[in-house]
Simulated assay, not measured.
Amino acid sequence: MWKAINIRPMKPAKRRFFGRDAKFIGTVAVVAIAAFAGTMLLPRGGEPSVALAAIPAYDFVCDVAYVNDGDTLRCIDGTRVRIHAIAARETDNSCSPGHPCPSASASESKAALTRLAGNRITCVQTGKSYERVTAICHNMSGVEINCAMVESGAAEVWDKFNRQRAICGG
């Protein structure tokens, strides 16, 4: 009267690779790639160089097309850059009314900016002035161009703008 019941063991559910395991493996891969890339960017010795550590994050890169005068240049992409918080003589050697006036001539200031900027600069935008981007810029050696122009005597600090955003690492 009793009937035998055939009990079969249950098969374990098949695990799908596309669930939690895939997310975990993906996360591990991203972390590993980021760690590897971060390690490769450090110079030998494990410490970032002083020049790289001193350069702040920048807003844009300018491949310099030409230098207009001692405080303005143009990038190859057409962007006009006004070097923030400095004043240099105009191309006719005059100083605009109300602007600081350096002792350096217009050609000396232009030559100094040309030498400092080189072919490429990185810049942090500080504002706009007459359809130009005002910026604090560094050359490829890590030198802050704004400050170097003042220190060389090729330009004067323009206090009005320097108080808004200080140059020379201030």
Rank of each mutant, 00 (worst) to 15 (best):
G70L: 15
P56D: 00
A51N: 03
Y58C: 00
P43T: 08
V67E: 07
I55T: 15
G46N: 08
G78V: 09
D63Q: 09
I76L: 02
P48E: 00
D63S: 01
T72P: 08
G70F: 15
G46I: 11
H84F: 12
V64S: 02
T79S: 13
R82Q: 15
D69I: 15
D77A: 02
I83E: 00
G46E: 03
I83H: 05
L41H: 02
H84E: 03
P48A: 00
T39W: 14
A65F: 11
A57Q: 08
D63P: 03
Y58D: 00
G45I: 15
D59K: 01
A88T: 12
F36V: 12
N68E: 06
R82G: 10
D71T: 03
R82T: 15
D71L: 03
A85C: 06
A87G: 04
C62S: 09
S49W: 03
R44L: 02
F60P: 01
T72G: 11
R80W: 14
C62I: 11
R89G: 06
G70V: 15
D77I: 12
A37N: 07
I55Y: 01
R80V: 14
M40Q: 13
N68T: 14
R74F: 10
A57H: 05
I86M: 08
F36I: 12
A65W: 10
E90D: 01
R44H: 01
D59A: 01
I55D: 00
S49R: 14
Y66S: 11
S49T: 15
D59P: 01
G38A: 10
A51P: 00
V61H: 08
